[in-house]
Simulated assay, not measured.
Amino acid sequence: MHEIERIETPTRRPLSALAELLVDSVSGGAAMGFLAPLSHEAARHWWQYDALAPGMDTPLWVACNGEQVDGVVQLSACQKPGGRHRGEVLKLMVHSRARGQGVARHLMTTLEAHAGALELSLLSLDTRAGSPAETLYQRLGWEKMGDIPGYSLDPDGSGPWATAFYFRRL
């Protein structure tokens, strides 16, 4: 069973495991804004200096199975006065070894509970159109806003693909 932990500032071991998870995700076809091949060092640098930089208020939940990090999800609450009721789901990733075990559902449930505690009433996210993630989001009650064709490049750089946008009222 996976335990969900909230991480503020990762130590060396979780940082390395987060990098390995990002590399696995990108090599498996989830662009996440990166192109393959993504090096472990570049992934580690991104987690340390971009995703979890000091002063960033973007909680990260990690699904751990013993020493392994099998999944993550991050929440970015809007800081603008007119948008303090909403947040964005960032970087939901599940390692290939842990797919089909309910990790993504558990992470999303945890994130949504935290968003509710923050009194957020609207969440949004994006994912590759036609991906298995779309089925997950629909099963969790997310509503599709639509697709934007050619929004992101395929991780192998072969060409653009459509991105689907979703929202959920809490």
Rank of each mutant, 00 (worst) to 15 (best):
Q138Y: 01
W161I: 09
D154S: 15
G141A: 04
E134Q: 13
D154W: 09
D156C: 06
W161K: 10
G159F: 08
P149R: 14
K144I: 03
S152L: 14
L153R: 13
P155E: 05
S152P: 03
R139P: 03
E143F: 04
G141L: 03
E134V: 08
G150S: 14
F165L: 14
A164S: 12
Q138A: 15
Y151L: 05
G159Y: 03
A162Q: 08
L140W: 00
G141D: 13
L153I: 00
F165A: 13
G141H: 07
R139I: 01
M145Q: 13
Y151H: 14
Y151M: 11
E143T: 14
A162C: 05
A164M: 01
P160G: 13
D156F: 12
G159L: 09
D154E: 14
Y151K: 12
E134Y: 05
E134A: 04
P160R: 15
P149Y: 03
M145N: 15
R139S: 13
E134I: 05
T163M: 09
M145C: 12
P160K: 14
G141S: 02
D154A: 14
A164V: 07
G141V: 00
D147R: 08
G141R: 12
W161L: 11
P149W: 03
S158E: 00
Y151I: 00
A164W: 05
Y137Q: 03
P155G: 08
P155S: 10
I148N: 02
L153M: 13
D156H: 06
D154V: 09
M145V: 14
Y137S: 03
E143M: 13
I148E: 09
L153W: 11
Y151W: 11
L140S: 05
E134N: 06
Y151S: 08
Q138V: 10
G150D: 15
A164I: 04
G150C: 11
Q138N: 03
T163C: 13
K144D: 01
Y137R: 03
L136S: 05
P160C: 03
L153D: 12
L136M: 07
T135Q: 10
P160W: 00
L140T: 02
P160I: 07
L140G: 02
T163E: 00
Y151F: 15
M145Y: 13
L153Q: 11
L140R: 00
T163Y: 08
W142F: 02
A162D: 10
Y137C: 02
G159W: 03
P155R: 05
G157P: 02
P160L: 13
T135V: 07
T163G: 07
A164P: 07
W142Y: 10
E134P: 04
R139T: 13
L136F: 07
S158G: 09
W142A: 02
K144Y: 04
A162S: 15
I148V: 15
E134T: 08
G146Y: 04
G159R: 09
M145K: 15
P155F: 07
E143N: 06
K144G: 01
P160D: 04
P149I: 02
I148K: 05
M145E: 13
T135C: 06
S152T: 14
W161D: 05
P155A: 11
D154P: 00
I148W: 09
S158R: 11
D156P: 06
G141K: 08
K144P: 00
G150L: 05
P155L: 01
